[in-house]
Design a protein around this nucleic acid. Structure first.
Lengths: 221, 221
DNA sequence: ATGTATTGACTGAATTTTCAGTTAGCGCGA
DNA sequence: TCGCGCTAACTGAAAATTCAGTCAATACAT
């Protein structure tokens, strides 16, 4: 769906920074459609999926509405790709680790993976509210369902694998169940946090407790 | 599940149709506005609060759009009254018990309370999706936040009390935490169920497992 | 190297669609 | 003959989507 990420300077744009082509770690300049997706994540986090107006998105991204339709088929297309985008981003802040930091024990990695979704940073907040919105919208939107289900499955399996590293004796199905509960709980807690029901550190506390409980449960086979 | 379940006669309810005044068991004829509210509940379950279109509601109820405005001030009015309506109904399936059925043990009552929200019936489905919608909307809507927080608190306390009956030795705070986790998990599972991620009986299974785990955790003080 | 055709990225200004809400009035029971 | 319950047909505005083109960069032939 996405066009080539070729960089093209544009008239009204003024001088574009020359995409720092340096060796090693480089902050790659976001292509137009990525810019739009980033903007979409912000708008969704601010207004919700159903509150997303193509015009507002265009303004947020600093482009014309027509460009949105040029890059994405229609409003739904934007939504779909934003879901994917958000997912990838979550992957990053959940998975990426400083290469020369001390390696994590399986248990630490598990905690990390789950608790990183409960941080009060712009990125996480944005991601979580967009995710919650997409989840809520999927209830009424066929199109989103499949994508969301797939994304959820991947996530659950990842958590199950981590659990398996901590409790290698547990059966695959009990690991899967524990992972489903933990991830579902995380979603529930996120929503409560975002809707002002609980504070972030309380949410983390609760999450920690749940991890503890599930691991204890797995130990008893 | 919600704050005040008080029955309040409302203006739109009007002096209504004499409803087949016959002795004995009578299928009371639903007044026009009740018909509309029932239809609204169905439409909301299908499209979500934010997806409710007045025209679609009118069609569903088999009336003209204008009649909706005749009975309810505006779209928001319909929404408000529908939520009240749905709430009253939820009260029924959550609280009502056959008076001469065998009394429940605390443990059964706990299971009952939590698992009743995971049933594939029209009523529960409608209620759960409305609740999910509310939760999601509250993220972007100041106004809803307070009501929702209060309602959640009541619910959490109710569950904590039930947990306390099963594990009388547990501390108040550990009961509260367990209750928060269980209710948050229930919300998470509901959303997954409604968005097609998992089947209802699997959700129930997971919920049962969580109750088990939490009770086990409470036993270890 | 220079002009020319072609293409991809992009825009401003429509056009079309979608909705909430209104208006004018009909029929019918008291 | 009111006036209540109701409808068909609108209106107006907000949004989504499309259209007709501009502009800069390349490819390509000369």
């Amino acid at each position: 769906m996405d066009a080539e990420p070729r960089r093209v300077p544009r008239s009204g744009d003024g001088p574009r920074a020359p995409a720092a082509e340096r060796p090693g770690k480089v902050r790659v300049m976001a292509s137009r459609s990525t810019q739009i997706l980033e903007a979409a994540a912000r708008v969704i986090a601010r207004r919700g999926v159903r509150g997303l107006r193509v015009e507002e998105l265009a303004a947020e991204a600093g482009v014309s509405t027509a460009l949105i339709y040029y890059h994405f088929k229609d409003r739904t297309g934007v939504l779909r790709q934003t879901l994917e985008f958000i997912n990838d981003r979550a992957e990053r802040y959940t998975t990426d680790r400083d290469p020369d930091a001390p390696p994590l024990t399986p248990r630490e990695e598990l905690d990390e993976t789950l608790l990183l979704e409960l941080q009060d940073t712009v990125e996480v907040r944005e991601n979580s509210s967009a995710w919650g919105e997409l989840r809520a919208s999927a209830v009424f939107d066929e199109v989103l369902r499949e994508d969301l289900a797939r994304a959820t499955l991947v996530w659950v399996q990842e958590v199950a694998a981590l659990l398996g590293q901590v409790q290698p004796m547990a059966t695959a199905s009990s690991l899967a169940e524990a992972a489903e509960r933990l991830t579902a709980l995380l979603e529930g807690l996120s929503m409560r946090w975002l809707s002002g029901g609980i504070r972030i550190d309380h949410a983390r506390e609760l999450m920690r407790g749940a991890i503890e409980a599930e691991l204890a449960g797995l130990q008893r086979y």
